[in-house]
Design a protein around this nucleic acid. Sequence first.
DNA 1: TTGAATATTTAGATAAATCTAAAAATTTTC
DNA 2: GAAAATTTTTAGATTTATCTAAATATTCAA
Lengths: 218, 218
Amino acid sequence: MHSFTEENYLKTIYHLSQLNDSPVQTNAIAEGMKTRAASVTDMLKKLSDKQLIDYIKYQGVTLTDKGKTTAVSVIRKHRLWEVFLVEKLKFKWDEVHEIAEELEHINSGLLVERLDEFLGFPKRDPHGDPIPDHNGIFEPDQNIHLHEMSRGDKGVIIGVNEYTSAFLKHLERLGLTIGILIEIEEIADYDGSVELLVDGKKINVSKEVTQRILVNYK
Amino acid sequence: MHSFTEENYLKTIYHLSQLNDSPVQTNAIAEGMKTRAASVTDMLKKLSDKQLIDYIKYQGVTLTDKGKTTAVSVIRKHRLWEVFLVEKLKFKWDEVHEIAEELEHINSGLLVERLDEFLGFPKRDPHGDPIPDHNGIFEPDQNIHLHEMSRGDKGVIIGVNEYTSAFLKHLERLGLTIGILIEIEEIADYDGSVELLVDGKKINVSKEVTQRILVNYK
DNA sequence: TTGAATATTTAGATAAATCTAAAAATTTTC
DNA sequence: GAAAATTTTTAGATTTATCTAAATATTCAA
Ligand SMILES: [Mn+2]
Ligand SMILES: [Mn+2]
Ligand SMILES: [Mn+2]
Ligand SMILES: [Mn+2]
């Protein structure tokens, strides 16, 4: 069995490895885990001994199949619990991430499968992130970051990639929640901010925000 | 905030202090926590520093109000999660205790209250144990151990005080589950075993079992 | 009431996860 | 292709929770 800490490292490494296909670096992990590089090196040795990562000194790490399976399993639990909290316990989408950080480490295979069934095998969590199935398979993703879209493009907001309460509440005030149809009216050269058409109204959104919104567009 | 370990010590001390009104002894805690007396002494100093227990060397411990509140809160969570697992996720009563041992440490006040509401404010867990309410108040208990009853007494099984799968499955095979009406037919002097009338049938039950069954009798 | 048995605490180690500071390797820049 | 900047690792501590073995306190029982 793996400690909470080991699981969190694997999850962090998994998310970082999704950003590009080069090995994940020590400092990036340290930032993700809010710890020091020296501590990361210590843990990388341990994860390597357990064959959860491939690790070459100074060269960064990649997850082994075993490591990837573990990481995906933790992510599956995280996202299923978030669905439970929002759908069954009436939490807001900005209130669930921290609690799911704890629940994701509960260790019972039967529990996960029963929870999945109880929730009706959801495909997405409350932030639009795909939930891996029993076999670790994700629903295919053809998302694009809002800030990568062009003038005139339309699409549906399908997810975010920041989960702080502050950010999610900000989006709600702007009316930018999952499932909302948006259209790019204008992009400002000056600061990269974007004017959107949402529900017939024009709103202005900073680059900080557009970088953190995922859109499904056709 | 308290570590999982601290919470488990408090819970163990709470349960032991229910057995009689003298201070709880180091060895009893060691047995309950499946650890060594020396480790218990270490932890008692820590809990005492945090004002969760009153501790006098060699004289055993009692919980402070603060300690009792914490222990009861953990027990509340444990039992609510057990109800959730059985009522919503279709677990058997012998499958939930270990998982609840993990879930009881999830740290969110809002979560507990929402879960309680979602479950319809249950008064008892799947093993018949009372669930403390929001303020830590338990439903009053007028239970008696089955082995304390006399020939001819009748009552309804209302709880157990062992939660291992082996024991609970044994009870199920015997037909001795929560809510079942029983009558004492005979008590054997020789080994303390008891002949019960259950659902019109006579069954014989060992003292090991009768000591672990709680009955509500009038 | 004193010696034996039992219970508890102390002393000193160990393992996991972390840290700071310093050393070493790698990458970037000129 | 060196020197500088950056990144990573090592060395050595620290904290938490545990352990064994030895010392000490308490309780029991003759
Ligand atoms: Mn989340
Ligand atoms: Mn986590
Ligand atoms: Mn239980
Ligand atoms: Mn526990």
